[in-house]
């Protein structure tokens, strides 16, 4: 094999590193961090790390759901609008007299219900998920704007609870790390993860082996909605106010981008949760780093687009090199 021939000395170490799926994107992340720290001493200061962590957390959590969906061959475009709706549902339940914790749980159950609808329409009525969730995206957006009358509300909850949920410095990123770890475990070490990969890798083969692929897909739609709803809620606690225009398609696409940059192909059948976290970190570093340098939002989008292309091109080709595949 060509990889064995190439695998001598330093080349072998490089090949071994690149064989690790998340390797190339970690490398990119480290280089970017070094660059921004060199360009601005404050980049790695604790104040900025806190800001950076807030850039990362939301997209990292939602990416966990989107990655599971991408692996089983689906996508959820409506996640960003579940993000916007969920804190309002919590707010209304709370305003109607329910304590904050049951209100929060109620909002998550509602989010799961939205995921269930996305999943049922996609699986049972055989509408491609891209179209299903495009429909629910607009539905949810309109609904959120209607019930909120288009204006923000206070998030509520006691200061202590708000701190745990996201208001204190590193609360949000702690949630993100915990969820990423759990989801990494689910993907790599449980039947659910294995069957998710099987459903995306060979739908007919998986069904032939007796796997209920519809159940797997619907479950992952529900999971994604719950994660998106939860992210919306902790963002609302962090900011202290619940905005009907929060989240939306930008946060959804940022999460999908984090997954894809991290090494999860859109084609399904494989993927990595840890890669999604690294992807979210790289996107966060880019945004925060350029913000520190005073580059405006328009430029940032151009850089983000370029970064997605570069990351994908290098992922496909470096990955192939690392795996010893010539063609």
């Amino acid at each position: 094999m060509s990889s064995a021939a190439r695998g001598a000395g330093a080349g072998g170490v490089l090949a071994a590193f690149l064989r690790w799926r998340e390797a190339s994107i970690i490398l990119v992340g480290v280089l970017l961090t070094l660059y921004f720290q060199a360009a601005n001493d404050n980049f790695l200061s604790s104040d900025n790390l806190q800001t950076l962590s807030q850039f990362i957390a939301a997209s990292a959590i939602i990416a966990c759901g989107e990655i599971m969906l991408l692996i089983c061959g689906e996508i959820d475009l409506s996640a960003g609008h579940v993000f916007a709706l969920s804190p309002f549902l919590m707010h209304f339940a709370n305003a109607a007299g329910a304590p904050i914790v049951p209100s929060l749980l109620l909002a998550l159950v509602a989010a799961a219900g939205i995921g269930l609808v996305n999943g049922l329409i996609t699986v049972k009525l055989k509408v491609p998920s891209f179209v299903t969730t495009l429909g629910t995206l607009y539905l949810l957006n309109g609904f959120t704007l209607t019930v909120s009358h288009g204006s923000p509300v206070d998030t509520g909850g006691s200061p202590g609870f708000a701190n745990i949920m996201g208001a204190s410095g590193y609360a949000e990123i702690s949630w993100a790390f915990a969820i990423v770890l759990v989801m990494h475990f689910v993907l790599r070490q449980t039947r659910w993860g294995l069957h998710t990969i099987a459903a995306g890798g060979n739908l007919i083969g998986a069904a032939e082996a007796g796997i209920d692929v519809g159940r797997i897909k619907i479950g992952n739609f529900m999971l994604t909605s719950v994660l998106a709803g939860f992210t919306g809620i902790i963002e609302a606690f962090r900011i202290g106010s619940t905005d009907p225009l929060a989240g939306g398609t930008p946060i959804m696409f940022l999460a999908v981008a984090a997954g894809v940059i991290g090494g999860t192909p859109l084609a399904g059948g494989s993927g990595t949760i840890l890669g999604g976290l690294v992807g979210a970190i790289v996107l966060g570093v880019l945004r925060d780093g350029f913000t520190l340098q005073g580059i405006n939002a328009f430029t940032f989008d151009m850089i983000l687009g370029g970064a997605i292309l570069v990351a994908m091109i290098s992922n496909i080709h470096l990955g192939r090199f690392g795996r010893g595949r010539a063609s």
């Binding site: 069957h195 990969i197 890798g201 060979n202 083969g205 082996a209």
Partner: peptide, 15 residues
């Protein structure tokens, strides 16, 4: 009915 992205072991024990 094999799943390409899964290991030999996981294919043997699928479901």
């Amino acid at each position: 009915a094999l799943v390409n992205g899964l290991s030999v072991t996981h294919n043997l024990f699928l479901n």
